[in-house]
Simulated assay, not measured.
Amino acid sequence: MRKTCFILVITVIFIMFSGCSNRVSNETTVSNETNESNETTVSNTSNETTASNETTGLSQDQEIIDTFNTLVNSKPVDLLKISDFLVNNIKKISAQNADLMLQGYEKIQMQSLPSYQDAFFDPSVQSTLLTYSIEELQQNQVKETDLQKLLTDAVAVGYKIEAIEGTVAPYVDYGYYAQFGALTTASTSAFYALMKVESDNPSQKDGGLLISWDEVLQRGINFEAFLKTYPESYYYERASMHFEAYQELALNGSINVPLFEYETNVMNDEAKTAYTFFVEKDMESEFAKLMKNYLTLLEKNNFIKTSEVESFIDLQK
């Protein structure tokens, strides 16, 4: 039953990812061409040519992108081979084509995630994994040779090991993408920097809030700034979903750490302090203005979630 739940979660995540990756960007052009063989290709954006390749009419960028596409569309997919090629060649191409390579890799990495998770979901494997702490697993401090390989293989292709709802499995590690920030365009670098924070320090897990209320507000500001700075980014819609999620957290809290106590509807004291400090800052931000108006309304209602407060929250959805 737990395996089924995890597969459902990953399916939903992939649908969100796929739905957002079709945005047209003025910075890069990605051709996610679906043909009869369902291949995914990355189109070279560079018009550069080199003297050594004049006879073939192909630039170094084009040769690298062509090889990358061949690897991505090989069956079965060898994610480790694709990752090794990316790591060794991304520095040789333009920033625009580096963007495209990362976009292509992230798509194939998401498609491959369920198969990597299946290996962890095997009952005998899962029971052994659960004898170790998450820190031991993340540092590969296990005795079993087969587990060492399982963990090593997952990390090598850009996954990280997490324990969610009592089950250990690999998930996308955005630190993998952030390491290439200096080789990509500004918007790609900025997006993956934001995602690395999410990956390293998730805001929620098992319905609980894992970060402070101050951090909830700051992350909302950070994603809003990205949206304002890069309105034509390939990652705009994904960043927008993260911003909306933080706005919802700021207005309501999480399931297990609500902004208002379930029995009394009184606002969380720590949140009250954090919000008061936050609105005192002089920030040119629509999110900051929203929170200032929200706090003014809460003060009027003695920091109790009244019908008036609920109406305000509903208007932001």
Results as ranks from 00 to 15, higher is better:
I134K: 11
L151I: 13
S124L: 08
L150Q: 01
N97Q: 04
L100E: 07
A169V: 12
Y116A: 08
V142Y: 02
P114Q: 10
V142Q: 03
G166L: 12
G175A: 04
Y174D: 14
G158M: 06
D173Y: 11
S127D: 15
Q109R: 15
Y116V: 08
A119I: 10
I161L: 02
T128I: 15
E144L: 11
G166Y: 10
P170E: 04
T152V: 07
M110P: 02
L102P: 01
E162K: 14
L150S: 03
I164V: 14
V155T: 11
V155K: 03
E136L: 06
L151A: 07
A169I: 12
L102S: 01
Q109G: 08
P170A: 11
A98T: 04
A119T: 10
Y159N: 05
G166Q: 07
Q141I: 04
Q109K: 13
L183Y: 07
E162Y: 00
Y132N: 06
D122L: 05
P123L: 11
D99H: 05
A119M: 14
G175R: 09
G166S: 02
Q126L: 09
E162W: 04
A169W: 02
K143N: 12
A156V: 08
L129A: 04
T131P: 08
T167V: 15
Y171A: 13
T128M: 15
L100V: 13
Y132E: 01
D173E: 05
N140L: 10
